[in-house]
Design a binder for these strands. Structure first.
Lengths: 219, 219
DNA sequence: TCGACGTGTTTAGGATATTCAACATTCAGC
DNA sequence: GCTGAATGTTGAATATCCTAAACACGTCGA
């Protein structure tokens, strides 16, 4: 099977360096065409990652224990680094080879959310403000919850797949999980499997504010 | 930096094949010792995967478009395959390089946490209070973070697998993610892929408090 | 017992990756 | 306009990878 990457490298070399003829991969069988998933653009990935970290080629080379020339050639896709040396190079960053190959650096997901941008659901006594509008492809759902005095998620206990956790920021909340009830105040926290029936009640006299998260997103 | 893998390869070659002398990686500096994460045992992984699929080396070689010798050498860790050829080999299976490298080598939980029970790590300018002592089997890690004025996670950007999100509860924080920088204040929020290099800095004059969550737990 | 296959391993040599050193460029500081 | 120090690129030499072909061993059936 013909390797697309290697081929392109050769083309590149031929064009730039020498006229030395190139032996076609396997004289015999024709390649079954590009059925396999494309190999990510190692060079550009590395360059972007390096830039993000604010390192020069030499700086990274020193950290990684390779030469700056190697970094340069890899970034230009002039060579296909061995696993060993790619590992060395990535040792210059806190990232694994697997993550490096998977990470989508180009996709610009929304990162920052002004308070007013949080999506608010449930008005009245209980309000949830969600971080992020579409939870597509996200593993987490972060929330800013506010319970007015007397607010109550009700006697019909909640129950859904996933896990949830939170920290009380202000006021107090009475939380029941799987039959056990506790009152939490500012700084206290909870963590439970969302399949356990649960209920929140503000038994205090001021608004209760909780910052919580659940996975997977359930809104 | 000396590459452990390559070294062992050489040793192996020397012992079995020839007595040809081996030039030590870099005459100069001594290796800073095994600080970096171990490179997964490519050879054994490949062998196991191949066995699971019931292929012989030659059979896989044919599918992959490499020679059986290459498979053999890789499985013995005699060579560190190039990304390109590892890709080719894995094209013989329905698995990506990243998955291949990651592939796994095979009650009543505590719900309520008083503020004092939160496990505190990092005492100085930055302190994290974690919900839950052992994150074993948990999908989420909830945290109460406090940054003193001037606190900074440092120019060596953080980067790790997972996703993280948070809401600023008090003060302000300057957050850099994947090259983009923003200053968030109380009520603002963020969400990003933790593999993107990121950095937190309290550029304000009072303590900044953030309640955040990440998945999977990374402490 | 023998050959014809199957397996994984090894070897020599050509192809590719990596290093080292030099080069070209940019940019700050004078 | 000069340096000097930084950057990324390149060519030649060397080390490593990859292939092709042979090797050694085991199994099976005649």
């Amino acid at each position: 099977m013909l390797n697309i990457l290697n081929t392109s490298i050769i083309v590149c070399r031929m064009a730039k360096d020498t006229n030395r003829p190139y032996r076609r991969a396997h004289g015999g069988e024709a390649p079954p065409a590009g059925l396999e998933a494309a190999l990510p653009d190692i060079g550009q990935r590395l360059r972007e990652l390096r830039m993000m970290h604010g390192h020069s080629q030499r700086e990274l080379a020193k950290r990684a224990g390779v030469t700056n020339g190697t970094i340069s050639l890899i970034e230009q896709n002039r060579i296909s680094p061995s696993i060993g040396s790619l590992k060395k190079v990535l040792d210059g960053f806190p990232i694994s080879i697997a993550d490096f190959l998977t990470l989508d650096l180009r996709h610009k997901a929304k990162v920052f959310y002004a308070a007013k941008e949080l999506r608010e659901i449930g008005s009245g006594a209980i309000s949830f403000k969600l971080v992020g509008r579409d939870t597509q492809g996200r593993a987490l759902q972060m929330m800013h919850e506010r319970y007015q005095p007397g607010a109550d998620t009700g006697p019909d206990m909640l129950s859904h797949t996933g896990e949830e956790s939170g920290i009380v920021v202000a006021g107090l909340i009475e939380l029941t999980v799987g039959g056990e009830t506790r009152t939490l105040t500012s700084g206290d926290a909870y963590y439970f499997d969302s399949r356990l029936p649960h209920r929140y009640r503000n038994t205090g006299t001021i608004d209760c504010v909780i910052v919580s998260a659940c996975t997977p997103p359930s809104f």
